[in-house]
């Protein structure tokens, strides 16, 4: 009973051992934020819950993508539609990244509507059941980009709960602590830096 939290108890300290790694973690996995993982500061990214410099993240992401059996980009509404010049530039940069990674495919997340009882997980990803898409397509590494943060958070948590998929979130805002790797402020320039890292690794003989 020593762990019982009662009214008036001091807040529980973050678990220093907690790492955001591929699941399946269980039906009701904790939010990474509840386990003490904080969003990265400007100029930093998160890798499995640990803050690292932005300059190191592209190589880590590139390596994960090249080693994956079935890497997949999940573009969301913020890049699927041409809202602005910035969103079009990011969309183009993402397409260049997909073209550079051997065998990488794209499954869009065009909206967040419930689509019960049917969903064709080969055509689009349902944020309410992202694990269906991952199981169906046996995706081992996925990249979220252009997904509104509130839906990205819940979808990333569901994926971590129910699958062993390694999640990467390229967020235009503050990043996502529930992803295994996340870059914040990820516009076209940061996406291009990942593509450049992929090219470097491939030139060095690294391939799937």
């Amino acid at each position: 009973m020593g762990d019982t939290v009662t009214a008036g108890s001091p807040p529980r300290a973050p678990d220093p051992r907690y790492r955001v790694v591929a699941g399946p973690e269980g039906y009701l996995s904790p939010a990474a934020a509840a386990m003490g993982i904080e969003l990265p500061d400007e100029g930093y990214s998160l890798v499995e819950g640990e803050s690292i410099s932005d300059s190191l993240a592209p190589d880590i992401i590139a390596e994960r993508l090249l080693e994956a059996r079935n890497p997949t980009l999940f573009p969301g509404p913020l890049v699927l539609w041409g809202w602005s010049d910035a969103s079009i530039r990011k969309a183009r940069a993402l397409q260049e990244l997909v073209a550079e990674v051997p065998g990488m495919k794209m499954i869009p997340m065009p909206d967040y509507r419930p689509k019960y009882p049917k969903i064709d997980p080969a055509i689009e990803i349902n944020p309410n059941h992202p694990n269906l898409t991952i199981w169906h397509n046996e995706i081992d590494v996925c990249v979220f980009a252009g997904v509104h943060c509130h839906f990205a958070n819940i979808a990333l948590k569901i994926i971590r709960s129910g699958t062993d998929c390694y999640t990467i979130a390229l967020c235009g805002e503050r990043g996502h602590e529930d992803a295994m790797v996340t870059m914040r402020d990820a516009g076209d320039v940061k996406v291009a830096s990942i593509t450049a890292a992929v090219r470097r690794l491939k030139a060095g003989g690294h391939d799937a």
């Binding site: 890049v79 499954i107 869009p108 065009p110």
Partner: peptide, 17 residues
């Protein structure tokens, strides 16, 4: 009007197009 970002037209489900 807002249109799909260039290059993403083909992956949007048909009904959106």
């Amino acid at each position: 009007v807002i249109k799909p970002a260039p290059g993403f037209e083909d992956i949007l489900p048909l009904e959106y197009q």
